[in-house]
């Protein structure tokens, strides 16, 4: 029997599945990031880590970094509906585990005009040593402007401190108005 579907327009679900399998993805989500969604993702990941009998220390680190990553998406995602046909409040989030390391991937649209500000925060954080990050954190905590949304880069500083890794990021230009911002974070046992 012939299918009525135009196969060329359909997603290759198996291909996506295999990609995720190869990368040991534990959980992935694409869509609008809401407060309830964050609560659910955190609960699911916490349960998964308990079931996998993860070391309490690593579990805490992963949980903390997850909170910051997800709340970054929630607070700072640009609304691009005015300048683009793309779905406005949509983002992607994935978490995987490979050889004892947790890998967190996030991606969201950003207005090109906001890139330089974010890039300067990321580059500043990446240029600092562990001790310098500690001082920078205290400085921003004590003097930084705090809005309803959060604290002027405090989240990124915290992620860098807790993971002990550089922030691996990229801006993929979509057109002259918007880009796609990706952040890859590695969490390991070591401090």
């Amino acid at each position: 029997m012939q299918s009525n579907f135009d196969v060329s327009n359909m997603l290759d679900v198996f291909e996506i599945y295999e990609k995720m399998e190869q990368n040991n993805i534990l959980l992935s989500f694409k869509g609008e990031i809401t407060s309830d969604l964050l609560t659910s993702i955190l609960q699911i990941m916490e349960n998964k880590m308990v079931n996998m009998q993860e070391e309490p220390k690593l579990k805490k680190k992963v949980y903390n970094v997850l909170v910051e990553c997800l709340q970054n998406l929630y607070h700072h995602m640009d609304d691009i509906s005015e300048v683009s046909h793309e779905n406005n409040r949509s983002a992607i989030f994935m978490i995987g585990k490979n050889q004892g390391k947790y890998l967190i991937y996030t991606g969201n649209y950003i207005l090109n005009e906001n890139i330089s500000r974010l890039k300067s925060v990321l580059d500043e954080v990446n240029s600092l040593s562990k001790e310098e990050l500690k001082d920078y954190y205290k400085k921003v905590l004590n003097n930084g402007e705090m809005s309803m949304k959060g604290g002027g880069g405090l989240g990124m500083i915290d992620i860098a401190r807790k993971t002990g890794e550089k922030l691996d990021y990229d801006f993929l230009e979509i057109d002259n108005k918007v880009s796609f911002f990706t952040l890859n974070i590695k969490v390991t046992q070591q401090n």
Binding site: K60, Y63, N64, V67, E68, Q71, L141, G144, M146, G150, G151, L154, G155, I157, D158
Partner: peptide, 9 residues
């Protein structure tokens, strides 16, 4: 047990 950077301030 946990606190986020939004709480830290």
């Amino acid at each position: 047990e946990y606190f986020n950077t939004s709480s830290s301030k």
